[in-house]
């Protein structure tokens, strides 16, 4: 990379997203317990979650943070353990970022009452 601080900035980004996600993971676990406390069907879960705009805000933020955090960690694992070249690891990480973001936001869209089709 031309900028010697590129790695350090990614490192910073990963740590910051980790700090922000810590309380959100707890919130996510609490939501799972809340959403699955009785019937385990998509319709019954959505009935409980769709009414809250806060959940949409919460999960939009959570999805963005996860989409940044996870590919950065996988990028390091690809480089250190699987010996993937930096260029390829960067490309795969960008694809993972887009994939996590797309799938995650689609899930949030379903939470707002969008169709699941």
């Amino acid at each position: 990379m031309p900028n010697p601080m590129f790695e350090m900035r990614l490192y910073l980004l990963q740590r910051l997203t980790a700090i922000l996600m810590l309380p959100m993971v707890i919130g996510h676990l609490a939501t799972i317990m809340y959403a699955t406390r009785s019937e385990l069907t998509a319709a019954s879960i959505l009935e409980r979650t769709q009414s809250s705009p806060w959940l949409v805000v919460f999960y939009t933020g959570f999805v963005i943070l996860v989409s940044i955090h996870a590919p950065l960690g996988l990028r390091k694992i690809m480089g250190e353990w699987l010996r993937v070249s930096p260029k390829l690891a960067n490309r795969i990480s960008v694809l993972l970022f887009l994939g996590f973001l797309g799938l995650g936001l689609r899930g949030v869209w379903a939470l707002t009452g969008g169709t699941m089709s």
């Binding site: 990379m1 010697p4 601080m5 590129f6 790695e7 350090m8 490192y11």
Partner: peptide, 8 residues
């Protein structure tokens, strides 16, 4: 703190 530095 650059490439190859403490962040690794």
């Amino acid at each position: 703190m650059g490439d190859g530095g403490c962040g690794n």
